[in-house]
């Protein structure tokens, strides 16, 4: 072996620093900042996706040359992530957005119901 003679793997150090910075940024946005809730959620979700990318590409050897791309089945990874996105977005779309679960006066879950009720009633009347 002995082809990686570097004592410290720079890409790992950079990846670690990046993930620490992004975690702190996300925590700051959620806890300290005065941004509107929608923007906070968009911002921290983008940071989470970027951090996942750091792990996958900088730590998990997905694109390294020595091993010929790391034997990663790209098509299956793509299908896994696509299925994940469909599952989460689809569940939220069919189960939560635009529906009133009948918990009036209950805590939580009442932010988007009323503004979206009107147009969603027509769409989902077949259910």
């Amino acid at each position: 072996m002995a082809k990686t003679d570097k004592k410290v793997p720079m890409n790992h150090v950079i990846g670690f620093a990046l993930s620490l910075i992004m975690t702190l940024l996300a925590a700051w946005a959620a806890i300290q900042s005065d941004l509107p809730v929608t923007w906070v959620i968009v911002f921290i979700m983008v940071l989470a996706l970027l951090q996942a990318g750091v792990q996958l590409f900088m730590f998990m050897h997905m694109t390294e040359k020595e091993s010929g791309g790391g034997a990663v089945p790209w098509n299956m990874m793509f299908h896994g992530f696509a299925l994940a996105a469909i599952l989460v977005a689809g569940s939220l779309f069919t189960m939560s957005f635009g529906f009133d679960h009948g918990d009036h006066g209950d805590h939580g879950g009442e932010h988007e119901e009323h503004m979206e009720m009107d147009d969603s009633e027509g769409d989902h009347s077949g259910h």
Binding site: F81, L87, H101, G108, G109
Partner: peptide
């Protein structure tokens, strides 16, 4: 890696369940 792709889907179902039950 194929196992990890399946794990992504496993956790996606749990995230979807969590998100749908949010606030209840």
């Amino acid at each position: 890696w194929i196992f990890l792709a399946a794990e992504v889907v496993l956790f996606a179902t749990l995230f979807a369940t969590y998100a749908v039950l949010y606030g209840r």
